[in-house]
Design a protein around this nucleic acid. Sequence first.
DNA 1: GCTTAGAGTTCAATAGTTGGACATACGCCG
DNA 2: CGGCGTATGTCCAACTATTGAACTCTAAGC
Lengths: 399, 399
Amino acid sequence: METPGSQSSLHRANLERVVRAVRLAGSLTQAEIARTTGLSAATVSNIVRELKDGGTVEVTPTSAGGRRARSVSLSGDAGIVIGVDFGHTHLRVAIGNLAHQVLAEEAEPLDVDASAAQGFDRAEQLVERLVAATGVDRTKVAGVGLGVPGPIDVESGQLGSTSILPGWTGTKPAEEMSRRLGVPVQVDNDANLGALGELVWGSGRGVKDLAYIKVASGVGAGLVISGKIYRGPGGTAGEIGHITLDESGPVCRCGNRGCLETFTAARYVLPLLQSSHGTDLTMEAVVRLARDGDPGCRRVIADVGRHIGSGVANLCNLLNPSRVVLGGDLAEAGELVLGPIRESVGRYAIPSAARQLSVLPGALGGRAEVLGALALALSEMGDSTLLDGTLPTVAPAFT
Amino acid sequence: METPGSQSSLHRANLERVVRAVRLAGSLTQAEIARTTGLSAATVSNIVRELKDGGTVEVTPTSAGGRRARSVSLSGDAGIVIGVDFGHTHLRVAIGNLAHQVLAEEAEPLDVDASAAQGFDRAEQLVERLVAATGVDRTKVAGVGLGVPGPIDVESGQLGSTSILPGWTGTKPAEEMSRRLGVPVQVDNDANLGALGELVWGSGRGVKDLAYIKVASGVGAGLVISGKIYRGPGGTAGEIGHITLDESGPVCRCGNRGCLETFTAARYVLPLLQSSHGTDLTMEAVVRLARDGDPGCRRVIADVGRHIGSGVANLCNLLNPSRVVLGGDLAEAGELVLGPIRESVGRYAIPSAARQLSVLPGALGGRAEVLGALALALSEMGDSTLLDGTLPTVAPAFT
DNA sequence: GCTTAGAGTTCAATAGTTGGACATACGCCG
DNA sequence: CGGCGTATGTCCAACTATTGAACTCTAAGC
């Protein structure tokens, strides 16, 4: 890193300013760039030439009917980012470019009993296949975002204990994938990535403060504060699943009683329907049955919604986000679950905070996490790696 | 504002960099400034001369036994900021300089029945008196921070309904004080300012993520996230007083049942002791009695602590701050209340979040809010107003 | 007293932005 | 069809600000 406060750092900042402006608008003429960035036309002219020579930007000779406006846009393969998500049942991979376009996406079932090594193998293969299929330049891959369904220790990068992928505990997924793929890998948990995905491509667009609630086998929240994922000093922010709703409620796996999770997570909710609907139920099936009119499933989902609403009300009082996005299988239930959530929020949150809160279903479904991983790779690159031709690579023998 | 991205903006940034470095260290030689800021010695030389000529910095010819090191420090009257706090029972004013030194501080009782106009009169007089007493140059006053014990609408600056200062509802305190004092006034509520005060001068020093819990006639929290006060999009973040602890608990003034406030705030707690200890009890008195060994008061305070702990556990799960600071009268009870809080947190928060949380009493007592107001004035000035001689002034006929 | 080493200043060199002048291209209008 | 007006993008000189190197100055160590 060059010394801060020098002109060259200013120049870099201006480069990024231009790139950001172009990306936000998709395509801009130089004059427009000058106006939106506040830079002078002369400076923009220089910067655009520099970016064009570096290959990060493309100049199409003419665009709309004007005098002679050359439209500037990010070149499609200026830098490639990859998102990988180890989900509860699926492994997903997405490829995108720096223009925030998703080039390809693929999912395959993941055996929960697979060993960590097998999982990494599969992921590596799927990435390679997708890279080959899209025909992107392998050397243009600038970073990878990785999603894992469990707590990640910020310091060490170690995966904490997770009941979804037993046997993965103690592995260092980012390090492992980085070694295999030869590029930097950023890792985060599924709730945070879901939040990021919905923020950039889904129901959270245009909002700066957002909570993404993911209800699956557990309940987690990803918090976006001022446009950035908030992990907290210890990295465990967003543990909405274990706030206490009823001190004398059912015992939770965390050791407490009456956690939100005990009223909402699949492992606690599905047994309620066992006697009436059989033992092979999944959350997906319950949602489908509820949509088809099954009264028992409707009731259960409404109850879940009410409890989630209580938790969201707490969150809303404390953080006052402008939007709550519901993800996970449960989101498919639509109004069947959102209605009760809103009702609970309206009842338990203070009115001034609840009034301006919107509760929406996730727009991306199961894709939220992969796309979030993509966004993580983008954001962790700080938009600056694309400015010079030298994309960062991690030595294969990474230690 | 000059165009961003220009060299002059870079220059300003470097000026601020130097000022910040000097303030953080208290006093630095030029060579040290160069090392900590990363700027070259030549640049530092120029900047220091510029700042010295502008009067914002003082150069003492020699300091410690070295070769010939001139120590650079912020000049005491480079810029003056004032904090004003309308508290529940007191009006407090503090005067400080840009070096984060508190020059003077004074409090006087404030009649709760006083009209808003009377209150503003008193505040204006107290400010003028303190300015005169400290002998600071009136024209050097760069900004004022103002604390009010009630919700402030972010958009309009209007004070919402507050039961502490009835009759003030609907006034625009910042505008009013700005008109009277002729300088920009920033306003915020007491919990946020308490958080800021403890962060800068008190128990929160060195921490970037902090929750300040203020228990008084109500219960509020001020949240510091990544070193800045977090107000939320609607400005109502931190309403910890109205998270639900018991759905069938006592009815709260907010209309719900079992809010944290109904178990902890003075208005709900004091009546518990009426039959045994008389009706004229204040929270202060209860704390004093508890410290002297009164078993009833001890029990009540411990119960309050346990409930606060439940709320803090929720907050801790959601936000995972590294420190919680307890303010308000209740903090005087020390371990009598902190013990039960820690116990509840340990029981209800997830272990990984609770483990690294420290719960401390506020170090500033009733001064936290004024000092926070001071810090608010400093921070809202962005440290930049002191760089040129022209301090901002608001026209008397401010509209 | 000489040497040494660090502090601060000066000066030329360098990097980068800016305003203005200029060439270019297109639509409009006569 | 040609001139006019307007907006775009480029080039050049002027200006601003940082930097490295050379230089001076001071005090400590021997």
